[in-house]
Design a binder for these strands. Structure first.
Lengths: 343, 343
DNA sequence: AGAAAAAGTTTACGCGGGCAAAGTTTCTGT
DNA sequence: ACAGAAACTTTGCCCGCGTAAACTTTTTCT
C-alpha cells in the first residue's frame, strides 16, 4: 500500500490509469470490462486498497445488494443454525446478509421489517413468528419488497414458502413409536405461538387415526418462548397428575421435550426404551442440544439444508425477475427420524 | 397518509411548512428545534410518513449511527443471549446495532470487521475469538475505529475490555466443591480456543493451592467449537480410563460439562451430590440449557448484564469523545455460584 | 487491411441530505 | 418595551458514486 490517500473513486481512477466511469463499471461487475483494464484496476487495488463507499453506491441504486434475514428468535439454536447456513449461501451469491431477530415479539418483527425497508434490500427472507405475527403488516411489506417465507407459513404472504412437511414427519415418528411400544400422547402448549404446532397436532390426529388408535393430547399452560421452562414446570404437574395415558409422549418440539425430560428426571422417572425405563419421550426438530440430553432425544431432523438452500434460491430468482410471477411457490421437505435412546 | 408523494426531505419540508435545513436538524435531534416547529414536523410526519434516506444521511456524516456487534459464534446460546441484551441497549441509546457472527473462524472475524469498516460504524463491540484471532489485524482495526472488547481479552487491543473475573469465579466454585465433597479435577480442552480457558486453569491452580490441595487437570483432545461433541466423545474415554482422581469434576465451561454429563449418563454413572451418586460435575458460564440438564448443572453464572451494560456504556462514551483517551479501561465482574443438583 | 463492434474516455447531471454563512424572525429576560 | 439570544430561513456547495450521451480508441472478424 502506497502513501497516497485515496479518498474516492476519482482518486482511485487516477492512480489506476482508468477513467472513473469504467472503474465504476468494474466494481459493479468485474467481468464487464476488458481483461487488460481489469488487471490495471486490480493492480492498483493491491497497491492502494480502495473500497467504494457503500452509502454512495446504494443511494443511486434501486436495488441494493442487501438481503434481509429475519428470524423469530436467535436465542433458539434452531434458528441460529438455519440462519447461519443461509448467511453462507447469501454471501456465496454475492449478496450481503443482514441478520435480524424478532426476539419473539410481533412489534419487533415489524420493526425489523421497517428497519429493513429503509435499507432498501433486494429481498428478504423471513421466518415469521407465526400466529403472533401481525399478518397484515407483514403482507403489506411483502407486497412491496421481494419476500420469501420459511419455517412457518402465513397464508398467501410473500412469493414463496419453504418448510417442513409436518404431516410426513409426525406420521413417521408416530408410526415408529407405535411400532416399537405404546402409542404416544401428544404434549403441546395450549396456545402455541407457532402455526407449525397446529399442523403437528392435526398430523398427529391423522396418524393415530390411520393406525386405528385413539389420539390423546396433553396441553400445557404457558405463554412466550421459554418452552423449556414451561414444559419443565407444567411437565411435573402432568407427571404427578398421571395425565398420560400410556408410557409414551411425543412433544410438539424438542425444546418442550428437553424441559419435560428434566421434569421426568426430577421425579426419578427413568426415561428410555430400555428395560427398567417407565417413560418414552420423543421430540421434533433435532435441536442441536438434543443429542446431549440424558438420554439422547429421539426426534425428527428437519431438512434445514434443503429449506435454506431453496429459500435462498427463491429469493435470488425473485430478485432477478423484473415482474413478480403470479404463482406462489410452496414446498415442504421431509423430516428424517433420528433415533436416540429416549424413545 | 395523504396522496402527495414525498420523495425526499425537500418535499417533506414543503408539506410540513418548515425549511429543509431545519427539518434535517430535527431528524438529527428532535430536541434541537423549537417545540412549535417540532409539532409541525411531527404532524406532517403522521400525514405523510416520510423517512430520510439512510444512505444519503450516512454518506455525509462522519460518524454513522451504526454500532457493530461481533460475536464468535451465534450458534452458542451464550453469545446469542448476550448479543440480545446488548442489541437492546444499543437501540435504547438511539443507535443501530449490526450483529455479525464470526462462526468460529479468524478469517470470518476479520471479514466481519472489514465489512463493518465499509459501513463506517460509530463504534464496534467485539467479543474476539480469542487465541485464534488474528490479533494484529484486530488491533489495526481497533486503532482506526472505536472498539470495545468483551468476554475475552486481547492484550492492549481496543479502548476497553469487560469480562468475567475468572479468578474469583473459579475460586468460588472450587471452594464450594471442596467444602461440600471431594476436591475437583479440572476438565478442559488441550488446546483451548478461548483465552478464558487459560485464565480458568490458572485460577484453578491458585484456588487449589490456597486450599492446600493438589491440583489435577484432565486435558482432552479435540479442536473447533463443537465442545459438547468433544467432551462427550473424550469424556467416555476419561471415565473408562479412570483418569479422574476424585469423584468431582469441574469443567472449564458448561458446554464441556453438558457433553461430559451425557458421557457419564451413557456409562450408567449417576451424577449428583445425592446419595447413590458416584460423580459430581460442575461447569462454568450458566449456559441457558444448564438448567435443564439431568441433573441440573451446578455452575457459575457470569454477570452478563453488567458486562453488556458496561460495554455498551463504554462504546457510547468513546463515541462521544473527540480524541481517544490514553488509558485502557478494564473491568472484571464477579460470577455467582448457581447451585443445582449435579454437584 | 479495413470496417464494424466493443470498450474506454470526457463531460455532465442527479441522488438525498449534511453543513456553513448570512440574513430574518421569534423568543427570552429585565 | 427593548436588546440580545435563540431559532429559523435562504442560499449554495459538497459528499461519492451511478449513469447517460457523445466521442475516441482498441479489438475483432471477414
Amino acid at each position: 500500500m502506497s502513501g497516497a490517500k485515496i479518498r474516492n473513486m476519482e482518486d482511485f481512477a487516477a492512480v489506476s490509469g482508468i477513467s472513473r466511469p469504467t472503474v465504476s463499471k468494474y466494481f459493479n461487475n468485474p467481468d464487464s470490462v476488458r481483461k487488460s483494464t481489469r488487471f490495471k484496476i486490480e493492480a492498483a487495488l493491491e497497491r492502494y486498497d480502495y473500497r467504494p463507499n457503500i452509502y454512495a453506491i446504494n443511494q443511486n441504486r434501486r436495488r441494493t445488494k442487501n438481503i434481509g434475514l429475519v428470524v423469530p428468535n436467535l436465542t433458539d439454536p434452531f434458528f441460529a443454525a438455519i440462519a447461519r447456513t443461509m448467511e453462507g449461501l447469501i454471501v456465496g451469491a454475492g449478496y450481503n446478509p443482514l441478520l435480524l431477530s424478532s426476539h419473539g415479539g410481533p412489534e419487533q418483527e415489524i420493526a425489523n421489517l421497517e428497519s429493513l425497508r429503509s435499507i432498501k434490500p433486494a429481498g428478504v427472507l423471513l421466518a415469521p413468528l407465526g400466529r403472533a405475527s401481525w399478518s397484515d403488516d407483514v403482507a403489506q411489506f411483502a407486497s412491496e419488497i421481494p419476500t420469501v417465507l420459511f419455517d412457518s407459513n402465513l397464508d398467501g404472504v410473500g412469493a414463496a414458502f419453504f418448510g417442513s412437511d409436518n404431516a410426513q414427519s409426525i406420521g413417521l415418528i408416530v408410526e415408529y413409536l407405535c411400532r416399537s411400544g405404546e402409542p404416544p400422547s401428544l404434549l403441546e402448549m395450549k396456545t402455541p405461538i407457532n402455526p407449525n404446532a397446529n399442523r403437528r397436532r392435526r398430523a398427529y390426529f391423522a396418524a393415530m387415526e390411520r393406525l386405528g388408535l385413539e389420539p390423546h393430547v396433553v396441553q400445557i399452560d404457558g405463554t412466550g418462548w421459554d418452552f423449556e421452562e414451561i414444559s419443565y414446570t407444567e411437565g411435573q404437574r402432568v407427571l404427578e397428575g398421571g395425565q398420560l395415558r400410556t408410557n409414551t409422549v411425543l412433544c410438539s418440539n424438542d425444546r418442550l421435550a428437553i424441559g419435560f425430560l428434566a421434569a421426568a428426571y426430577d421425579q426419578g422417572i427413568r426415561v428410555g426404551r430400555e428395560a427398567g425405563c417407565s417413560l418414552r419421550i420423543a421430540g421434533h426438530d433435532d435441536h442441536p442440544f438434543s443429542r446431549y440430553t440424558c438420554p439422547g432425544l429421539t426426534t425428527i431432523s428437519q431438512d434445514y439444508d434443503s429449506i435454506g438452500a431453496r429459500s435462498v434460491e427463491a429469493i435470488l430468482k425473485l430478485i432477478g425477475e423484473d415482474e413478480p410471477s403470479e404463482t406462489r411457490e410452496e414446498a415442504l421437505f421431509d423430516g428424517r427420524l433420528v433415533m436416540r435412546k429416549s424413545a
